[in-house]
């Protein structure tokens, strides 16, 4: 089998400020990987990256999508949103940096750990953002 052939793919729609469904996409992704027998340490890392990316859409953007793909070699997430974008990506990547409002912080978010933890747990991570338009993350976690 070709190493790049897609074994599984699913698209998730994420809505901004929708706390009723927040985290559902990440739960589905994690449950799928668990069902097919992906190792616990890989599962953990994918769950952290997808949850943080999903919640950043919920907290900061209008709407977005997560494209989830599995190949024989890796798990791939492409996370895109229509939202305010990020003016200074380098600053946003800093541990502890957050623009979260009081309201967001009171719900337990806004630790400024999301993007840094995505980077820490991904084998490949690219973030691109256009202020006023939106943000795109490409995340890969290798299976071996």
């Amino acid at each position: 089998m070709n190493n790049n052939s897609v074994l599984f793919e699913e698209d998730f729609k994420i809505k901004g400020w929708d706390f009723t469904n927040a985290g559902e996409a990440s739960l589905k992704i994690k449950n799928y990987l668990k069902e097919v027998g992906i190792a616990e340490n890989i599962l953990k890392r994918v769950a952290i990256t997808s949850y943080e990316a999903e919640m950043n859409i919920v907290l900061y953007a209008k709407e977005g999508t997560i494209n989830f793909k599995v190949t024989p070699k890796k798990v791939l997430l492409e996370v895109k949103d229509r939202g305010p974008g990020i003016e200074d990506v380098e600053l946003a990547m800093k541990e502890g940096y957050s623009t979260a409002t009081e309201e967001i912080r009171n719900m337990g978010f806004g630790a400024g750990m999301g993007l840094p933890n995505i980077k820490k747990n991904a084998d490949m991570f690219v973030i691109k953002s256009e202020p006023g338009k939106g943000t795109k993350l490409n995340i890969e976690v290798y299976l071996k």
Binding site: E24, A47, G108
Partner: peptide, 16 residues
């Protein structure tokens, strides 16, 4: 153990 009680804690607990 937490003092958070917003519904977001459940997705986190379930994922973990």
């Amino acid at each position: 153990i937490t003092l958070q009680m917003h519904q977001n804690i459940i997705a986190v607990a379930s994922l973990k």
